[in-house]
Design a binder for these strands. Structure first.
Lengths: 138, 138
DNA sequence: TTTGACCTTAAAGTATACTTCAAGGTGTAG
DNA sequence: CTACACCTTGAAGTATACTTTAAGGTCAAA
């Protein structure tokens, strides 16, 4: 065989064989070729695709959104401007996600920095205190 | 009334009243005080909390993870080192999310840049072509 | 040739995060 | 006082994303 079987793909991508078959069923992963014995045979492309899916999932994209991201295609000059618009739209979504992450990260950073020198009454939520304001907790 | 009713909170946070009640039910949002007529009366704090929840959700944190983020508390010197460790853990998670987003963003940027000058056969996925490799599509 | 790790399918079950439904109380404006 | 927009509850329903179950075929090693 000159490809990966589903189990090998599962191991290298950290996505279970059941999930891989599920992704195929819902059309997120293209149907691979089959060995005469019926086994699925995957190419490197499928591995990249699965890794992309798991990365995109980790930053809050749904399987549907990921499917759309993966199908951003430049099939003709005509459709290209459409693709470009969709890309810009997705970039804007990503930028806002980046912004949220940076803010949450900053709140956590401040919390760590002041950790040693601060105590509180156990009721307030320092994360919210820091979030957006950056002001010290009492 | 010197607070917000659930409907006002819903409108300013873009989270439905049903969802707000759901968050309260699962303990993600503290129970607010009640007006003698039974209505929930919220303080500004609840608004900040809800906005934080929706931001954290948009970057792929589950309600459970968000709950943990919100409860990162400095209740004593003793627990502080524990909090600090948890913060650092969360920061590492955020950094990996930031990394994924930047990579996906870059792939989209490259796709837009080359949009005008490129066509392809309609089968390949340019996103995957660009992702990680950054090489031009043929 | 049998054991055991792999693969196949379809269907049912589960976790998370809501959303809708039903039945009713509250409060202000005309 | 009667609309009508708001609020209350608990329970049932839904969408998404898997996960498990059942029943069986494949294949390399002992």
């Amino acid at each position: 065989m000159d490809g990966y079987r589903i189990g090998q793909l599962a191991e290298t991508t950290d996505i279970s064989t059941e999930t891989i078959r599920y992704y195929e069923k819902i059309g997120l992963l293209p149907q691979p070729i089959r060995h005469p014995n019926g086994y699925r045979i995957y190419k490197h492309e499928s591995m990249r695709r699965l890794k992309f899916i798991s990365r995109a999932k980790s930053v809050g994209f749904t399987l549907n959104e990921i499917s759309m991201l993966l199908s951003l295609n430049l099939s003709s000059k005509n459709k290209c401007s459409e693709t470009e618009a969709q890309c810009r739209e997705k970039i804007a979504v990503i930028d806002s996600k980046l912004h949220e992450l940076v803010e949450i990260r900053r709140a956590l950073e401040l919390l760590v920095e002041h950790c040693a020198k601060t105590t509180n009454d156990g009721n307030a939520c320092p994360i919210l205190e820091y979030f957006e304001t950056g002001e010290e907790i009492k």
